[in-house]
Design a protein around this nucleic acid. Structure first.
Lengths: 337, 337
DNA sequence: ATGAAAGCGCTAACAC
DNA sequence: GTGTTAGCGCTTTCAT
């Protein structure tokens, strides 16, 4: 293993000079810099991460807590995680993957040991048990998600309330009066997951203002569960002409079921999804949708975090404005006979 | 920040005693142990990760390289990643998330800096450019996937060749003679991704032995792409009665298309999928399938890695035997008229 | 613009 | 069963 001292010797300079060449924290003459860089290359030197962390007081690692639950749309999680890792590298950080399993204890372990300099927390519940710890730690953190009380925290999220409202507006404009909201799995609501409840709230309150009737049905994954849900919807509200879906695994089953029942989309029934662009575009009917900007969320979270680590920027809530894209799945409500 | 020295002082013992209480590397009298543990608790002590890594020569971190490509079934990747993280924690390791983006350079950076003690590599191509580095590094590694030449490497994978063969056997037994294999996206084959090519090979060679005709069609994600593929299949081979699908995003579209064309599953056409159990069970027709044991793969990879870190176990290839579960999507080939 | 040297907090010989 | 101590490889004052 090559050490800084060996590089220094090889280059004929002192250890501190090598260190400063690496960090750029003081000016180095061109000649010295070149000799050092050459020595580094020739010896294949890589600074030791542990020594750096110990001496420098920072590990250059960001912890990312992802849920280990599998009842939510996984690709979104994955896309966020990858965006986080990619963006972090750009800023010189590596990413430590923590699953929700350890719970709040993981926060203590990672921050207490200096394993990570900061952390990003996903799958935030409205009243998340990790929040007190995050607030009291000296280490910066960013939530991807918005709890009930974001005081003293930095949050990055899609404005789900606005997203729900957008869906209601779109369907109202098209003349729909009875709409059904196919939501995430029941467990997601039972945990009071922020995004799910906010979307519902946003949809409901805008719907009320616009005179829409809304039937909300959480929906487990699987074709059968979707089938049961859709059947119940039409039983309870036969005049339903609009669907809002926030559950990627229900999208394709829903479209297949409507087809089977002889209900044409969008002539008889309109469908608006809240999902990643890719899902909307690849569905069997190109879906009118509010995009979930997973990459943007991951990237933004890292950038807020890096800003805090650099002493710039403080606590705030950064909500991304939702955008609804009209595609082939929504149209005028059918005339009432 | 609480240090080991402070704990030692508080407990009235020496630093090394505290260290040994923590590591369990030498016997400690019950009394001493208790006083130390009490001091640790009272002071809220957490060993500094950097100092540990420096002094101990090991970081207790495992690096996990995941692809950042999005053309393969993401939930499987995610499930593996989560299984890796969970299993790693059980063995006292944390997981560092590396995206494929940095390529082979990431291997050098992480192993060279001592950031990670070992690494797990996913999305292995038959002739992967990271392999030479992994072979020459002193740090242990495990591949999830099987390259052409696994010499000097430890690999964990499903036996995809056997999986492909199983599918052929099942359909042959049911009397099918013309089968179509809907595969992963074209890019996956162009990269020579191990699992995709091996499944194809296994299917093809067993099919040849059994007198089956196989039409292989890679298939991009999205309903339209699947529709085009299926149409071409029946154009070229009108007597196709069996489908093997290794492409999760094509599963539901395929079933929907067959339904639309009035082809009943399994009366007219049988479908066998190679996918996670969950997908097979939740599809609109419960699918006969060969399970992709994502969790098992992640867990096994970590256990092999930990064995190597502990000086137990050396290089070997651990292939998981595939299992085919018969469900509702496969049946006797229709009689020929 | 560069060097010397004092730690950072822990582990693991080496003592007893 | 416990204490003493010499590093681990780097960063960063303090000097010049």
């Amino acid at each position: 293993m090559v050490t800084l001292a060996e590089v220094a010797q090889h280059a004929g300079v002192s250890a501190s000079t090598v260190s400063y060449v690496l960090s750029g924290k003081r000016s180095i003459s061109a000649g010295t810099r070149q000799r050092v860089e050459r020595a580094i290359r020739e010896l294949g030197y890589h600074p030791n991460a542990g020594a750096r962390a110990l001496a420098g007081g920072r590990s250059n690692i960001i912890a990312l807590m992802i849920p280990l639950r599998t009842d939510m749309y996984v690709p979104v999680m994955m896309e966020i995680a990858i965006a986080v890792a990619t963006t972090a590298r750009i800023h010189g950080y590596d990413v430590l993957l923590l699953t929700g399993e350890e719970g709040p204890e993981a926060v203590r372990r990672v921050t207490g040991s200096g394993l990570a300099d900061a952390m990003i927390v996903m799958d935030v519940q409205l009243d998340d048990e990790r929040l007190p710890l995050l607030r009291e730690t000296s280490r910066p953190s960013v939530l991807i998600g918005l709890p009930s009380d974001p005081t003293g925290l930095t949050c990055v999220d899609l404005d789900w309330t606005a997203a729900g409202a957008l869906c209601a507006e779109h369907l109202a404009q098209l003349g729909h009066r009875d709409i059904a909201f196919i939501g995430e799995a029941p467990a997601v609501y039972e945990r009071h997951t922020g995004f799910a409840e906010r979307t519902l709230d946003g949809l409901r309150s805008r719907a009320r203002e616009l005179g829409l009737r809304v039937l909300h049905r959480p929906c487990a994954a699987g074709y059968d569960a979707v089938a049961a849900t859709v059947t119940r919807v039409f039983d309870e509200r036969p005049r339903t002409t609009g669907f809002v879906v926030q559950n990627e695994s229900a999208v394709e089953p829903l479209l297949a079921l409507l087809r089977q029942q002889g209900r044409a989309v969008p002539e008889d029934v309109s469908v608006v999804a809240v999902c990643p662009e890719q899902v909307a575009v690849q569905a069997s009917v190109r879906l009118t949708s509010v995009a979930v900007p997973a990459q943007e969320m991951g990237r933004s979270a890292v950038e807020h975090l890096v800003a805090k680590l650099d002493g710039r920027g403080g606590d705030d809530v950064a909500l991304i404005a939702p955008e609804l894209t009209v595609r082939a799945s929504s149209g005028m409500a059918p005339a009432v006979h």
